[in-house]
Amino acid sequence: MNLIRQALTVVRKDLLLEWRGKGRLISVLLFGVVTLLLFSFAVGPDSTLLRAAAGGFLVLALLLSSTLGLSESFRVEQEQRAIEGLLLLPVDPIALYYGKTLSNTLFLMLLAPILTPVALILYSVELDLEGLAVLFGLWTLAAAGLSAPGTLYAAMTSRLQSQDVLLPLLLFPLVIPVLMGAVKSITLILTGDPMSQVGSWAMLLASFAIIYWSLCGLLFPHAIEEGI
């Protein structure tokens, strides 16, 4: 279908841009690593405390890095007004939204393979392969949840002054369910899940992602109709 084809072309283009401008991915990754390091200084060298908080710190590193990635994904669009060029082609706004959201989700997923090992080592947590797989699944759900409203708001704030303040201000309170769900479930993975609660937290993450993928897809065409 044309819509899906367009969305996938947008994703392909974004991934190509990502690949060409590797600097962006690397700097966001480094930012994530630095935050992980800073959290351990905030707690002190107490390994029991660190281990208990490891899940929380890991998710916070994802959340803080996400706004950098999201605003960057629209900075390339605004630089020479490429987004206007896309709309003129014409790219269906719905295809544009889902393309951008999907590529932002993929971008945030790419943070996991680096940030997770760093967190495991820094906070001396051990995790088997199965645990890693579940963690990556949860990470994916969280990334999808963050990207849906994140892409909408990044687009809306991309031409406003002080986007750097506005985007986190809008996004952070909104994604508290994602934060809580991811922190709780990942902590359970890291420290053991005697009552098998991970499933319900994963459900929460999935519902958030589904609700906001649908809602923001509906709202995005209205948002850019006013000019972007």
């Binding site: 190509l16 841009l17 060409r20 390339v76 007004r81």
Partner: peptide, 14 residues
């Protein structure tokens, strides 16, 4: 229709 305006609609890295 097609419009070529003041902007170039390009991505520098492509």
């Amino acid at each position: 229709l097609t419009l070529v305006g003041h902007d170039n609609y390009l991505y520098s890295q492509l």
